[in-house]
Amino acid sequence: MAFFKNFEKAVNPLLQLLSQANPFTLFPIFIVFLGIGELSKITIIYWVTQWPILLNTITGISNVDPVLVKMAKSAGLGKVEIFTKVLIPASLPTVFTGIRMGAVFAFFMLIGAEMLGSTAGLGHMIMQAQMVMQIPKMWAGIVTVALLGYIVNYGLLYLEKKSFNMETRC
């Protein structure tokens, strides 16, 4: 979208509005239309994940130094080559930030979805432990969620660093 400025200007307000919709308020709507089960959880997780990835990708491509694009044009590169050889590589740090944010949001939304509409999982276990005052079990679930979120985030950081190391070797 950032490659097509007029399209971005037309669609950006709608995307910004949709990205601000609180997923926990939307979850009952997803349950009504998709039922209690995996499909509604997967859909709400997708909803939460798509926005940081999409918006960071748009921002990353929009913020590529125009001098790089001018140099690529003067070197005779076409639009597709400029996109694949200039815009995508230059925007990768911002895209990876969106992917990391999306993954963390997805993980925490999964836990939230399990708390609200599930009969299994860490979120369900935490809620059940809270209801029957099993405080150690509840804290075990909370610490497990925090550790898993940490592992997901740093696993993606590791992949990001590996990707940039491979990119600089080429």
Rank of each mutant, 00 (worst) to 15 (best):
G141H: 07
K9L: 08
T119R: 10
V132Q: 09
Y46F: 05
I135Y: 07
E38F: 06
A103K: 03
A146Y: 10
M166A: 09
V143D: 14
V11W: 01
I36N: 00
I142M: 13
K161V: 10
V80M: 05
Q130C: 08
R100E: 02
M71Q: 13
A90T: 00
F3I: 10
K79R: 11
P89T: 09
M115E: 06
L156D: 12
W51P: 02
T84I: 10
P28K: 11
P52L: 04
L148W: 09
E114K: 04
K79W: 03
I31Y: 05
K161Y: 07
G155L: 13
L87A: 13
Q128F: 14
G117C: 06
N12A: 06
K9A: 08
A106E: 02
T59R: 02
V95T: 09
G149H: 06
I29N: 10
A129R: 08
H124T: 12
K9M: 09
I44Q: 00
Q128M: 14
L39Q: 08
Y158F: 13
D65R: 14
G141K: 06
Q50E: 04
T84R: 12
A129T: 12
I42P: 03
G35E: 08
T59S: 00
V145M: 15
N56C: 04
P13D: 01
I126Y: 14
A10F: 12
F7R: 05
A129P: 14
G112V: 05
T43V: 08
Y158P: 15
P28S: 11
E167W: 11
F107R: 01
I126M: 14
I151M: 12
V67R: 12
K41E: 03
G155A: 06
M138D: 09
V67Y: 13
F33H: 04
I42C: 03
F7P: 05
I135K: 06
I111V: 14
G141V: 11
N153D: 15
I45D: 08
